[in-house]
Design a protein around this nucleic acid. Structure first.
Lengths: 335, 335
DNA sequence: GGTTTAAATCGAAACGTTTTGGATTTATAG
DNA sequence: CTATAAATCCAAAACGTTTCGATTTAAACC
């Protein structure tokens, strides 16, 4: 049995295709009676609009593009949370006609390249960006091209745009407080570069906590800019040989934390005794570390659902200033 | 500047839209000269066919649907390899007009539900299935509906279908040999149910190795059907209290292996000394376990690329018997 | 009652593609 | 040089939707 179209409904109801089309989107030109009648027949026939038809007429693609970084050769593993994020994003659009398509981005190449690719080839109606920079050129670009988007992470840009973010300054602030309160004095923050908005926020939170506890932080010895796992291992090996090695580590992911903890143990340090590691996590992995690790859990499934709903609302024309959400993380103490 | 269409090319070359359309797909009705001329102008104008136009006419959606299981509440983490798989799949279709869309499947609900959803709503032109069963009802269903698909994993079904698989029997056979050769006698295989094709293969490989080394295996005590991480922990805790506890574990994922190893250590067992754990892995995670773990690495990025190319060839009409690939894993000894 | 205005509906064109059924040209055979 | 077959090309319709401009119907006014 062929799928119902506007024409089918028009024949059933006796109205014209035009009227049916308008009725289904609650057009003001058609009277309430008719709208109801048309809608009834539509659901009865199980009508679903043909996206190719709409696409041809309107240029819509019904595709949302998620742009995420590739796994790099030096990485232990791809970002373990991305899968949850994808799950959440698809969950958030599951009762719409939109698809999610994943555009992997090669970290070697320019930031803008995949965004430009999506826009120029007309691949998607909306874009989801992650890993925002303090000054992120992708955003003015998308603004200029008038392509709706939402970012996972804020920026420092003047023109407002839709975003969802967690309070990274607060996360590190809380993590550092926790460590200071346990008597640790010599913390090390493992963070993305401050060019990344969340790197910048984390460093801010770190400074605030240190200041509150009256501790001087030495940028050379208290902050390590994230690179890849092999580099982290080398750094920790060196740091353990300092006359005053770090006694508390704050990590951004449970995988980075695993590398740190593993290396510390290889160096004869005992996590939980000589040194503490706390991390942000997107999975339950750290529960099973040895010893288990205190962590701040980020729910990326939820983040995904929220991001897609923000993007859908942006596509519907809601102003960006209504589409900005900030969430806080809470600590789970373990071990 | 508006995008080039068939009409644009027709005007440029002086041919009709019909001829241009046919020329671009090397139609036999148009002469070689014309084909070349049309193609030149097409590339010059940067022509890309409008998928909505094609879709409207032909019913194609240019969407490929990957159906993958949701993260379950008891899980430590979603399958860490899925991201690589997605990356590989998108890489394999990046120079076509196809998109990949991810359809998460709730493990609570029926196997067939998401497949049926995709088919009935006409969401995709082709489907990628994972976690095949020995007798997988999704496959006759897709055959009946004439929807092209490819599976990651084989089945025992009579009608051939495109698949990519790794040799799971061989993986477990090798893993068990490795452990027996190290003097372990009392192995435990952590495996999916033998209803799953790869579970069945693994058990087969396990039996073969045991038989070769003249060892009797007791299904109750040598084979644990995978459930979730919490169950695994409980099982290992109990097993450690047996009078003859397992001295070698074979796991299917590095995350399961982490849970096992962590629990063993909590029970006072020393991995690498009292007991060995080997695993299949899709990341470098196990390098950083403590102690590092011997593993068989599966390259899911490659698997994804292969799967999408198989599916594209299936869509192009190649017979299923030409679209079946089996790969072997090799061991990486660590610790 | 007739005119004006507003509300409700409709016909037809357009989006870019494929494809059917013809038409025209060219080559081949007689 | 004609008849036929083959090669090459084209016009037009169709896919499902939106939307402009036109038409019908109903209500409001004088």
């Amino acid at each position: 049995m062929a799928r119902a179209t506007l024409k089918t409904i028009a024949e059933q109801t006796g109205f014209s295709i035009t009227t049916v089309s308008r009725a289904l989107k609650d057009g003001p030109e058609v009277k309430p009676d008719t709208i109801q009648q048309v809608k009834e027949v539509a659901t009865e026939l199980g009508y679903r609009p043909n996206t190719s038809g709409i696409g041809l007429k309107t240029g819509q693609t019904f595709v949302l593009a998620l742009i995420i970084p590739f796994i790099r050769p030096g990485d232990v593993i791809g970002d373990v949370g991305t899968l949850s994020l994808i799950e959440g994003l698809t969950a958030g659009i599951s009762d719409t006609d939109y698809h999610l398509t994943v555009i992997p981005r090669n970290p070697e190449e320019d930031d803008l390249a995949p965004v430009r690719h999506v826009v120029e080839k007309g691949l998607a109606d909306g874009v989801i960006l992650t890993s925002t920079l303090v000054n992120d050129k992708r955003i003015p670009y998308l603004h200029e091209k008038k392509v709706p988007f939402v970012t996972f992470g804020r920026t420092e840009l003047a023109t407002p745009h839709p975003w969802y973010d967690i309070d990274n300054a607060d996360f590190v602030y809380q993590a550092a407080r926790h460590l200071y309160q346990r008597g640790r004095k010599n913390l090390l923050l493992l963070t993305p570069s401050p060019e990344f908005m969340y790197g910048w926020h984390r460093i801010t939170g770190f400074r605030r906590a240190a200041h509150e506890f009256g501790i001087q932080i030495d940028d050379q010895r208290s902050v390590l800019i994230e690179s890849d796992s092999d580099d982290h291992r080398v750094f920790v090996e060196q740091a353990c040989a300092w006359d005053n090695p770090p006694d508390g580590y704050i990590c951004g992911t449970e995988v980075a934390a695993l590398v740190i903890s593993s290396t510390l143990q290889n160096q004869g340090m005992r996590p939980g005794v000589d040194v503490d590691v706390v991390t942000m996590e997107t999975s339950r992995l750290a529960e099973f570390y040895h010893p288990p690790m205190t962590a701040f859990k980020e729910d990326l499934h939820y983040a995904g659902r929220l991001l897609s709903s923000l993007l859908l609302r942006a596509l519907a024309g809601e102003p960006a200033s209504d589409l900005q959400v900030l969430d806080r993380l809470t600590i789970t103490e373990r071990g």
